[in-house]
């Protein structure tokens, strides 16, 4: 009884030591890039069944950290890597590759959109997030308090959004009511409310979560359409990045090449984003 156990433990230790850690591609990070990678991995494995691809979520910050700590091969990042992050991992050469383009869209609950608030200026959105505008009636909407939905601090969507809206990617939004994580979670909270405003990747807009048009300083109104993302007119846009430590090699390189190929780019577009060649 006892002997079989010591044997078993010995076996565990042996296997632990002989394990080759590079058998599978480990990927983690932004929930914005995740749908592309998830589907691309499924497709890629149809032609490359020997290569395992393990995908984990957690947000852009998680992607950068885990890559920095050598836990994964590819980090998914939907924003720029910050100076602090580069400084935190001096031994890592962050190598970023863009696989698509996206916009971060200010979104509202459909009840608000249908009540007539379809367009806001960046300034008004900033006032909402600073807590200076607290009720939709101040924007000629219904008399309802605004539910301001913020995101966790290192999330890619938040960095990109706050950079444009409050001028600093790590700005504090003192008007925020909820702080949530993934795109899914943010979307759910906005659907569950009838007076919410939030920030979402363009691919997450639907019947219940409506993207706002943005009124620019010169008075033009920009709609969150793919066309406006392609021609860079929509003011809050970003590249969807995959990050590796130094130049990718081997299987990782093969997978990245697949993402950049025409097949891979079709997946990017079907997921609701804009391909890199557009």
């Amino acid at each position: 009884m006892k002997h079989s156990y010591s044997l078993f433990l010995l076996l565990v230790i042996l296997i632990l030591n002989s394990c080759d850690k590079k058998q599978a591609i480990n990927i983690a990070g932004s929930t914005t890039v995740l749908p592309i990678i998830s589907i691309a991995a499924e497709e890629f494995r149809k032609t490359n069944p020997d290569i395992g691809i393990i995908v984990n979520e957690g947000g852009s910050g998680v992607g950068v950290n885990q890559l920095g700590e050598g836990k994964i091969n590819i980090g998914l990042v939907s924003r720029d890597i910050t100076q602090e992050e580069i400084k935190a991992y001096p031994n890592v050469t962050f190598n970023t590759i863009s696989i698509g383009k996206d916009a971060v869209v200010p979104v509202v609950s459909s009840e608000i959109y249908n009540s007539g608030i379809t367009t806001l200026t960046l300034e008004n959105i900033a006032k909402i997030y600073r807590g200076e505008i607290k009720n939709w009636k101040d924007l000629n909407g219904p008399d309802k308090e605004i539910l301001v939905v913020d995101k966790e601090a290192s999330r890619g969507t938040r960095h990109v959004f706050m950079e444009i809206i409050l001028g600093d990617k790590e700005a504090i939004a003192s008007g925020a009511d909820l702080v949530l994580g993934s795109n899914n979670e943010e979307q759910t909270a906005i659907v569950q409310s009838d007076a919410a405003i939030g920030m979402l990747s363009n691919a997450w807009l639907n019947e219940d979560v409506k993207g706002l048009n943005i009124k620019m300083l010169d008075g033009t109104v920009i709609e969150p359409t793919l066309e406006n993302i392609i021609n860079n007119k929509f003011p809050i846009n970003r590249d969807l990045l995959i990050v590796t430590n130094a130049e990718p090699t081997g299987e990782v390189k093969k997978f990245i090449e697949y993402l950049l190929s025409s097949e891979g780019q079709i997946i990017v577009e079907e997921a609701g984003y804009v391909g890199i060649n557009q």
């Binding site: 565990v12 296997i15 632990l16 394990c19 850690k21 058998q23 599978a24 998830s38 395992g52 393990i54």
Partner: peptide
């Protein structure tokens, strides 16, 4: 891990 995991081939996979 969230997805892509099937049967782990070693002790050190999620």
């Amino acid at each position: 891990a969230f997805s892509g995991v099937e049967l782990p081939s070693s002790f050190l996979e999620p």
